[in-house]
């Protein structure tokens, strides 16, 4: 097996893989919700945005209740990257709330602006997690991989079942 294959295998086996894959799934839900809302189908848009909101909320909580505490306990870093990620989760929750508000009053322009802002914030956030925080977690939490990895996977699976 060549070196890139080993890297690929290790990457595939990473603890945070379920979260990384779930980012893509949430992106899809976001894209669906945005397309439906900007198409003017408000009833379906409310369903789509709610589905997206439920899944991403579950994602945030999985990180905030499982991954971040485990990382903080292991490294002692409580005011570093995890704090920043929590702050960005709060900002995204606020923007998703604004999306719901604009949907309620069928404000297409307003929805488009909030969705645009959320998309870039969400993508930057995901990039920071996938490129920096998740690899840090994978390294520092490697001894707990079997248990914690399963828990993360279960929580994400549950989120997908709920929607």
């Amino acid at each position: 097996m060549t070196v890139p294959d080993i890297e690929w295998f290790l990457k595939m086996a990473a603890l945070t893989d379920p979260l990384q894959h779930h980012h893509k799934h949430c992106d899809d839900l976001f894209a669906d919700a945005e397309a439906v809302a900007l198409g003017g189908d408000w009833l379906r848009a409310k369903e789509s945005v709610t589905r997206f909101q439920t899944e991403i909320e579950c994602h945030f909580r999985t990180e905030e209740e499982l991954l971040f505490p485990a990382f903080e306990a292991e490294t002692g870093m409580t005011i570093g990257p995890t704090q920043m990620m929590r702050l960005e989760h709060a900002q995204m929750r606020e923007l998703i709330g604004q999306m719901q508000t604009t949907l309620a009053v069928e404000d297409r322009e307003g929805f488009g602006g909030v969705a645009e802002t959320l998309l870039i914030l969400m993508q930057q956030h995901n990039m920071k997690e996938e490129n920096i925080l998740y690899p840090m977690c994978d390294r520092s939490l490697a001894p707990q991989e079997a248990v914690l990895g399963r828990q993360l996977q279960d929580r994400i699976d549950l989120a997908c079942q709920m929607t």
């Binding site: 923007l95 604004q98 322009e109 307003g110 602006g113 909030v114 802002t117």
Partner: peptide, 11 residues
């Protein structure tokens, strides 16, 4: 949060 991106300049 600040106003959204479209409020900076309408599409």
């Amino acid at each position: 949060l600040p106003p959204n991106m479209n409020q900076m300049l309408p599409e």
